[in-house]
């Protein structure tokens, strides 16, 4: 507890510097509200406003898009490693779409799926899919032959080898890929909500920014930062639980 507080103390220092810089007039409060005002704005939004429903709407989009990408991506990646013929057909598509900055798809997803949830979910799904496919493929392909051979010689069927050897052995890389996708999902979420949306935390940031309500804008930005941070931390905890055998 104390150690954690100590570790994160520079963030407090940063907040104090922020507050002091504005209070002393070093930075005009026209371009930067004092830290305390942002905290106050956060409290107002949390108690009276709709910060939590909006944040939840955003999280739901990210979770659905990412969840779909995990389900399809891990399956496709492992299948590609399992069967050379499947690989021949999927790999060219991956090579073609991998380098595309996925934010370029925002106008098309809006064109096809409208301004609501669906366009964001599809965008996040596409953006998260490829890193997960690639990491699942690398993980499953990197399984040592001797592991598979020992399982086979111990009487495991091909199916059992897949579930009991390949999937667990590929797990570290699969989870690393999902962690990358998690970060991408937040970037695409906020970007698409900036560009066109009717609700969500990114929509709120952009809206308060345009109206010049900067204390609330900063409050929402801090909320997104916290969401990204805690999502990643939770996932890391989960990874450590799942990969406990690795130490």
């Amino acid at each position: 507890m104390v150690a954690t507080a100590c570790r994160y103390s520079p963030l407090l220092l940063l907040a104090l510097m922020w507050e002091a810089a504005v209070r002393t007039g070093l930075i005009s409060d026209l371009v930067l509200p004092p830290f305390s005002a942002a905290v106050e704005g956060w409290w107002d939004l949390a108690v009276t406003g709709d910060l939590f429903p909006q944040a939840f709407a955003s999280l739901r989009r990210a979770a659905l898009g990412l969840g779909l990408a995990i389900a399809l991506g891990t399956t496709a990646g492992i299948l590609m490693a399992w069967n050379a013929k499947i690989r021949v057909f999927i790999n060219p598509l991956i090579q073609m779409f991998y380098p595309l900055p996925k934010s370029a798809l925002i106008p098309v997803t809006i064109l096809w799926f409208g301004l609501g949830d669906m366009s964001k979910i599809v965008l996040i799904f596409i953006g998260c899919l490829l890193p997960i496919v690639v990491s699942s493929f690398n993980g499953a392909r990197g399984v040592e032959d001797v592991l598979v051979w020992s399982a086979r010689s111990l009487g495991a069927s091909r199916r059992q080898v897949l579930w009991q050897i390949v999937v667990p052995a590929a797990m570290p890389e699969i989870l690393t890929g999902i962690r990358t996708a998690l970060a991408i999902s937040f970037v695409l979420l906020v970007s698409s909500e900036f560009i066109i949306a009717r609700d969500g935390i990114g929509f709120m940031i952009a809206g308060f920014g345009e109206e010049g309500v900067y204390d609330r804008m900063f409050a929402c930005i801090m909320t997104v930062v916290a969401m990204g941070f805690f999502a990643d931390r939770l996932f890391q905890l989960f990874m450590r639980r799942v990969l406990i055998w690795r130490e």
Partner: peptide, 11 residues
């Protein structure tokens, strides 16, 4: 590292 940096665009 994990935060969505684009959120700072309006800033």
């Amino acid at each position: 590292f994990p935060m969505p940096k684009v959120a700072f665009l309006p800033v």
